[in-house]
Design a protein around this nucleic acid. Structure first.
Lengths: 325, 325
DNA sequence: ACGTTTTAGTAATACGTAGTAGATAGCTTG
DNA sequence: CAAGCTATCTACTACGTATTACTAAAACGT
């Protein structure tokens, strides 16, 4: 295993000083085109790549970011793809961690990372970021502030779906909610309640408080007998699937007696019977935008323009006019 | 933003030399319990944590691993959880990347990582790891060798499911296969063919060559009319869901006319109508085992014992005796 | 021609750690 | 008691880079 070439080796081969090599590689001015070319030539010949540890020690910048994700639950791979790719282009290495809130505090204190991007629900962490530490913290889908930008937790699709359901003739609604420590879940619930209020609809209730399909099913099974026709707005596809199960087990037909909407466009949702009306989210762009935002924060640049059109309602069989029997 | 404490600061506070601090933190012998305690005390007081860049430069070890994943497709989050947690315990930082095969070559050459763990299907990469470079490459679910260990690509559940279907009275089978560049998919197909052969069953065919539910549906729609009763073994839940869709659209009842099995236990599978018989894989342990294997390879230790019991068939409504009409 | 500014490059240094060779003191042993 | 040993700790250095202060040369203006 041959020793890795250093900037000194490159300098020797190119007939310049190590400083010059460094200047070339950091892209500083004050180097003639000719020498720059010679240095790059020599570097290529030796297959030289700067030692990141040494660079990091000198610059006191680690060039590393951490992404905290909740490993359970939603499909985060596309979000990671967007985030990781964007960070790489910005010159950062990204590490993925799954941690409790306490551990996140430690992460922020450790100075190991220049930034931390968290997709986990974490009510308290925000403050710690404002406060003491050197590292930045940016939240994404589940962040109040992000919600304010309208990019992710934006529950507009709830409104769109409910308005369409009303057009189809629905008047009676039920919301199957996600856990209240997920701002996205809260946003959807709030949008549901606001729309019920605004359009003067009948709400059978807001049930469930987690992402379990079993709970959703049980909540539907616990409904009184005379609620159909009913429109169920679920906070995600798993809850929607559980609600459909519950409806069918009670002898209600979907979408005849009960219309159901979900969220996330899970891989199986298109093949569900009936296929599931849901909200597709562009998770790749979501991840990329989150990371751009974090990088901008680190560099003291202004927050990039929020992405629009990240969400799209996909109409499928689980929504139909209420049966008139 | 206060300057971060160094080992010198700790040494001064503890009244020892910097070397002693270093010895304590690297856990070497030759330090009395009393001094060790004093050093740790001082370190705790200053909230000292070793500067990883400096350590890395000195030791010439980066302490970093890369995990390459295909961002599309299966739910890799649990695998990541296992891998990342294990690596962290072993003292490694893990970066996640999604790369083409070419880029992986570059990654291996860069000496930036001590090891690379890839979950992407990559026929060629194996050789490059054997050859030139300093970094190790270990593949996981999709690796031939891993398959040989029987840990992941082990298609034993296919045999188990088919034998049970035969017990229930099924004689005619169909396999909906995944893409042939995924060794796991190939293993399942081979197990299917071998079992058909061994038990003298009738195989209607092996169809599809990707992970798309649409394709699965179309393949079922293209079957002749007189194949029922039929047992469909699909390479994963999405394909199974597509196959069920296709069956139902043809007027075949599931599981009356057609029994269907999947793989992966997707979040929606339990709520599917009918609920889907599938194979649960312990992805967390799978990721953890993969990482242990990589770390062992890096350290020149022997390969850890393969995990067993990572897979388990979950029997649900989509499998039943063939109808006798 | 001469002083001044600009440009192109270099020497020297610090970053924070791990490890090596050496020093000191206490202890054992013949 | 001297000599050797062991346990414990320290002084010093190298790791590879980025950057500051500096020098030499060139360009410029009058």
């Amino acid at each position: 295993m041959a020793k890795r070439p250093t900037s000194h080796d490159v300098a020797r081969l190119a007939g310049v000083s190590q400083s010059t090599v460094s200047l070339v590689f950091t892209g500083r001015s004050g180097i003639s085109a000719a020498t720059r070319e010679r240095v790059l030539q020599a570097a290529a010949e030796l297959n030289y790549r700067p030692n990141l540890a040494a660079r990091s020690m000198r610059t006191r910048r680690t060039g590393r970011l951490a992404v905290v994700i909740p490993f359970a639950g939603l499909n985060l791979a596309p979000v990671l793809e967007g985030a990781v790719t964007t960070a790489r282009e910005a010159g950062y290495a990204v590490e993925v961690v799954s941690l409790s809130n306490d551990e996140i505090e430690a992460l922020l204190d450790s100075s190991e990372y220049e930034g931390v991007l968290s997709f986990s629900p974490m009510p308290a962490a925000r403050e710690s970021a404002e406060g003491s530490t050197t590292a930045f913290l940016a939240l994404s889908e589940f962040d109040e502030e992000m919600h304010a930008t309208g990019a992710f937790s934006d529950a507009q699709p709830v409104v769109e779906m409910m308005e369409r359901l009303v057009e189809l003739g629905h008047r009676r609604f039920l919301h199957v909610a996600g856990p209240s420590n997920f701002p996205a879940a809260v946003a959807r619930r709030d949008a549901y309640l606001a729309t019920v209020d605004r359009l003067g609809l009948e709400s059978v209730g807001v049930v469930a408080n987690n992402w379990s399909g079993i709970t959703a099913k049980e909540c539907v099974l616990a409904l009184p007998d005379d609620v159909t026709p009913l429109a169920i707005v679920a906070a995600n596809d798993v809850l929607a699937a559980g609600a459909i199960r519950g409806s069918v087990e009670r002898g209600w037909s979907v979408p005849g007696d009960v219309s159901v909407t979900g969220w996330d466009d899970a891989p199986l949702s298109a093949h569900f019977i009936p296929s599931l009306t849901t909200v597709f989210q562009d998770r790749v762009r979501l991840g990329a935008y989150s990371m751009r935002r974090l990088v901008a924060a680190i560099r003291g640049q202004e927050t990039p323009e929020p992405e629009t059109g990240l969400q799209k309602v996909i109409w499928r069989e689980s929504v139909a006019p209420p049966s008139t029997r």
